[in-house]
Design a protein around this nucleic acid. Structure first.
Lengths: 224, 224
DNA sequence: AAATTTTAATCAAACGTTTGTTTAATTCAA
DNA sequence: TTGAATTAAACAAACGTTTGATTAAAATTT
């Protein structure tokens, strides 16, 4: 049977996948996020997606290629948005920082599984090509933020801060929240059925905290 | 041949391991940090430690138990020190924050491999018992920091901040730096042979940044 | 002190599973 | 009737683990 093109899903880079292929991909993202790449077997994945084991290799060629598809497909996240924010002349420097925080938090909280996969990969040192691809994106993003911060410093609205470590604080705070859902739940809400990543109040709380941290750290006394 | 008890290594919890067992353990920490638990095979480990494959099971019982030994052996890190700092009456609240930063950065930068293993485990959702053990320690540490921050707020030397997310910012910044050595090198130093984790200048830079962030965020205007 | 037994350490080989992948047959819509 | 989709079965390789033999130091007995 040919893929059902009647019900397609548009991907972030414009590619088009059949129902079934996309279905397997979604199941793989969840599984890899839970158990890691090596911890997930193709039989696990096939059972979860309710397809025959051979279908994974049929659609993606190999387990490794499936993984690369997942990572490279969406790893360019934030790139376009970051450039857009940096180039926006209607925003002040601190306004750009705020915009980055809002977009970054929303983006990451909306894809917790994919984000987990990315960071599991960053923590390891194998699959060198993939590893370096992810790093390259991080470095690009850091440079964009660096530009914004340095412009703010030149305009004397920002203090003379450490740009790279400021980026580390910004992303690191969000990552820390994303590390473990159960940790997150335990820290911020004693209820069991509470899902911080889909809860709007929690998202606003993270954004508010990050803005306050960045404002008090970045802004000169007079501009605060 | 029996273990050579003439040359022993004292462990953090007072346990004593033979030369060879400790040697395997050290190799395992490195290997797991690089490739993850499932990504590392016992044969890999045996080859790296230059011992027979059977010796791993002989000393540790199983691959899983070896892993638990690694994690539970040292996962209590910072616990005693944190309590000590909290109870220290000679320190002001911001002085306690500074002490935590100094200790935390030094501790983590001195054991990057072990730290990577911990976070790889936190990112996954399997091996539930181990996962929850790690989380419990995190929660305890967060409560200690929470106490310090809340005391500072009551004394009106701290602003009314979000205690849990402040902890996330503190730890998250360090974690972000620890995520990938190659990322870290690329961001902060263009030299290839530079090792940020053993470099004293870099450690001081991280400490300085974190203190500045925390001071400007926590302290009321008058106390800054 | 010598001889014997016991014990822990070490090893190559083999065990049974599980792994990712491929094959070859079959189904089924166009 | 054609060709993509789907399947159960089979594949070799890698996996964690166990085995049984061998070593040599320590403990015990003579």
């Amino acid at each position: 049977m040919r893929p059902q093109f009647s019900d397609m899903l548009q991907e972030s880079q414009g590619q088009i996948l059949s129902d079934k292929k996309q279905h397997i991909l979604n199941a793989a993202i969840e599984l890899f996020a839970e158990k890691g790449f090596e911890g997930s077997s193709i039989r696990d994945l096939a059972a979860r997606a309710d397809v025959n084991v051979a279908m994974v290799n049929y659609y993606f060629g190999s387990k490794e290629k499936l993984f690369e598809t997942i990572v490279e497909h969406r790893a360019t996240f934030m790139r376009g948005k970051l450039d857009e924010i940096e180039a926006d002349t209607t925003l002040t420097e601190i306004g750009k920082i705020d915009a980055i925080i809002e977009n970054y938090v929303a983006k990451i909280l909306s894809q917790p599984s994919f984000h987990r996969i990315l960071y599991q990969e960053l923590l390891k040192q194998e699959r060198e090509a993939l590893h370096e691809n992810i790093i390259r994106i991080f470095v690009q993003n850091t440079h964009t933020l660096r530009n914004i911060i340095e412009k703010g410093i030149r305009k004397k609205v920002f203090r003379k801060v450490d740009p790279e470590l400021t980026m580390a604080t910004l992303i690191g705070t969000i990552n820390q929240v994303m590390l473990s859902k159960s940790l997150c739940v335990m820290l911020v809400e004693p209820k069991d059925d509470f899902d911080p990543y889909t809860d709007d109040t929690f998202q606003k709380r993270v954004i508010k905290h990050l803005k306050q941290v960045m404002h008090s750290y970045l802004l000169e006394e007079g501009n605060r």
